[in-house]
């Protein structure tokens, strides 16, 4: 393609305009990006300041460590959920996969499997549930909400069937050591969560695969026309979500040193809430890992801070719901301002 000017004065003016506006344009884009991710950051700051002022022990190192360790499980699930929602999907099945993985990890370990074997087997089953979700969504054309609602029920039910409604103690002592692995007061899984978040953020932002996920969420039709293997991408996204939910289940097992089908039942909607708090639209195509981590931290701080203020736990639910609406309105507002 050549670059010689094609037609008269107006076009050349446009070109000049472009050159003149370049620096301010860049500044404006950077500001837009900042304002957008600031939405949740600002909200987080408000929450932090409020609790710091109204309780004496909120901003202490040990409480911060508590908050961070407390959000890791939700955070790991929310990372997978971010990929699914940005691609234009929805994954409720995490709330079934998490307890199933918790139970299976204990079952495999008690059956004599070594830590790596039990881990890999559990993760493979989690990814398998994700793949089944994707096949039903892609090939049978069923709505993701319905598919993953069903698989949440099936996986959660399978966990209860295995445990027969009881709690299985983790008797494989070697695998149970996982529960004690920590750096100071920071447990091992916190570091895994941070590492996963960094890797996921890099994938979403700087890789071809990440770009494709955003494109798919923006317009499925245009993605197909652009030659993107849409079905493959959807499969990978759900498989990763299932795998991360299973990993969250293993973490839970190592926390309670037992397998219980009763864990993680709220993660489906809480993880969606965290992703949306982070600025994602449920219609897909927007959002990101940094925002999601912010959303997870807001939820963690709210439940921790309110507990410190000795607010009863059912009020916490109400306040979390209100905060979700406020935060989403906040992020819409900042998006409008950044235009």
């Amino acid at each position: 393609m050549t670059s010689e000017p094609i037609s008269g004065g107006v076009d050349i003016m446009a070109g000049d305009d472009l050159a003149r506006q370049q620096p301010s344009a860049r500044r404006r884009t950077v500001r837009g990006l900042l304002v957008r991710s600031l939405g949740i950051g600002l909200f987080l700051a408000v929450v932090l300041v409020y609790f710091a002022l109204s309780t004496s022990n909120f901003l202490t190192p040990s409480n911060i460590a508590d908050i961070l360790s407390g959000v890791a499980v939700l955070g790991i699930v929310a990372i997978g959920q971010t990929g699914v929602i940005v691609s234009g999907g929805f994954d409720l099945s995490v709330a079934g996969v998490l307890p199933l993985a918790c139970v299976l990890f204990v079952q495999f370990s008690n059956g004599g499997a070594s830590l790596p074997v039990a881990l890999i087997e559990t993760l493979a089953i989690g990814a398998g549930v994700g793949i089944v979700n994707a096949v039903l969504i892609v090939n049978a054309g069923i709505n993701p909400l319905i598919v993953t609602l069903a698989s949440m029920s099936v996986a959660g039910g399978a966990a209860y069937t295995i445990t027969n409604g009881t709690t299985l103690a983790l008797t494989n002592v070697a695998n149970g050591d996982l529960g004690n692995l920590a750096v100071g007061s920071l447990p091992w899984y916190l570091f895994v969560f941070i590492a996963l978040a960094v890797v996921a953020a890099v994938i979403m932002r700087f890789t071809v695969f990440g770009r494709i996920i955003y494109a798919l969420g923006g317009s499925r039709e245009a993605s197909v026309l652009a030659g993107i293997r849409v079905n493959l991408v959807i499969t990978v996204v759900y498989a990763v979500s299932g795998l991360l939910a299973a990993f969250a289940g293993v973490v839970t097992a190592s926390q309670i040193l037992a397998g219980s089908a009763g864990v993680g039942s709220t993660t489906a909607l809480t993880s969606v809430a965290a992703v949306v708090l982070g600025g994602a639209a449920l219609s897909g195509g927007s959002g990101g890992i940094i925002g999601t981590v912010g959303g997870v931290l807001v939820l963690g701080c709210l439940s921790n801070g309110l507990a410190l203020m000795q607010v009863q736990s059912f009020y916490v639910q109400i306040i979390t719901g209100v905060a979700l609406i406020v935060a989403v309105m906040f992020s819409r507002l900042s998006q409008i301002l950044s235009r």
């Binding site: 770009r211 955003y214 317009s219 993605s223 026309l225 195509g285």
Partner: peptide, 21 residues
């Protein structure tokens, strides 16, 4: 609007999609 452009992406990302490799 229906099959051409990605409404959520920048101009650069829209143009880049056919050349990801």
């Amino acid at each position: 609007k229906r099959g051409g452009l990605f409404p959520n992406l920048s101009i650069g990302a829209n143009l880049g999609l056919a050349h990801l490799r």
